[in-house]
Design a protein around this nucleic acid. Structure first.
Length: 267
DNA sequence: TACAATGTTTTAAG
DNA sequence: CCTTAAAACATTGT
């Protein structure tokens, strides 16, 4: 599920627990999402601690607690964060519950591709440092994007857009949306773009991120009606721009949707 | 039934 | 050491 904007939406769910103490931590010790994490230390440190800060970076979520202690969450493909009444009972896929006075913060993930990380100490944990430049930050420059594209010059554009080291927060539907709006075939080698094409890719990339944040992150709703998003899974889906039947294929290991009419091979 | 699903990580090959 | 591609992970829904 979660790409950039959905992750931001889920961050805002748990944000409702800011400044409040964790009265109890409940978790499923064997759950796969805890792989590699020190569960005993997590439980010990967070019980009685206050949630001081929350931040989203691409698809990653960071929560800082008094102590100090850090919780890193990745939602994988099916992870969600929600807020329940204080005494709510955990459902089948609710693997982590942080009970507070006013509410209970819940992390659920049926498929468990998601992940929980824990770190104790004042300094930010290793997994919180040296993160790639956020796409909407001023560190994400056209030159930086071009460098990344050239570094993966032989891979299809679609696959490169999915790389979190270069495009943090971009996932399957956002990548298709960006390429559709930029008029670029997903199968184009990333190193084959002419300057004008790279410029267009950059602009549409930022536009899609902004648009998704404005709509999806607000209330977990849908992107704007004219976006490819609404047609891409539909059988017999048509291009919102020219009505041409959409094509689908596996590119970069993922199902990819594009319009053969307005997304062209370079000269 | 069999396959695919808004994602990473590991493994292996070039 | 770097890039690239494919398989693996676990569960649900069509």
């Amino acid at each position: 599920m979660p790409e950039l904007a959905e992750v931001e939406f889920y961050r805002k769910q748990w944000r409702r627990g800011l400044k409040q103490k964790i009265l109890a931590v409940e978790l499923h010790p064997g759950a796969r999402i805890f792989r590699g994490a020190d569960i005993a230390a997590l439980r010990r440190a967070l019980t009685g601690a206050a949630l001081l800060n929350c931040a989203a970076h691409g698809k990653q979520l960071f929560f800082r607690f008094s102590g100090p202690a850090w919780l890193g969450l990745h939602l994988g493909l099916t992870g969600r964060l929600r807020v329940e009444p204080p005494r709510a009972l955990p459902g089948r896929h609710d693997h982590l519950l942080l009970r507070q006075r006013g509410q209970c913060l819940v992390f659920s993930d049926p498929r468990q591709f998601g992940r929980v990380r824990f770190h104790r100490g004042r300094a930010p944990p290793p997994w919180r440092r040296n993160l790639p430049a956020p796409i909407l930050s001023n560190l994400f420059t056209p030159a930086a994007m071009d460098r990344f594209l050239r570094r993966h010059a032989r891979s299809p554009l679609k696959a490169v857009l999915l790389m979190q080291q270069g495009f943090p927060g971009i996932g399957n539907w956002m990548a298709d949306e960006v390429l559709w709006r930029a008029g670029l075939l997903p199968s184009r080698p990333a190193g084959s773009l002419k300057p004008a094409e790279a410029k267009k890719l950059y602009r549409e990339l930022r536009r899609v991120c902004r648009g998704a944040l404005r709509t999806v992150a607000r209330d977990n709703g849908d992107p704007p009606p004219a976006w490819l998003f609404h047609r891409r899974w539909r059988r017999g889906g048509q291009c919102p721009r020219d009505g041409a039947p959409l094509r689908r294929a596996q590119i970069g290991g993922r199902t990819t949707c594009w319009c053969p009419c307005c997304q062209k091979e370079g000269v």
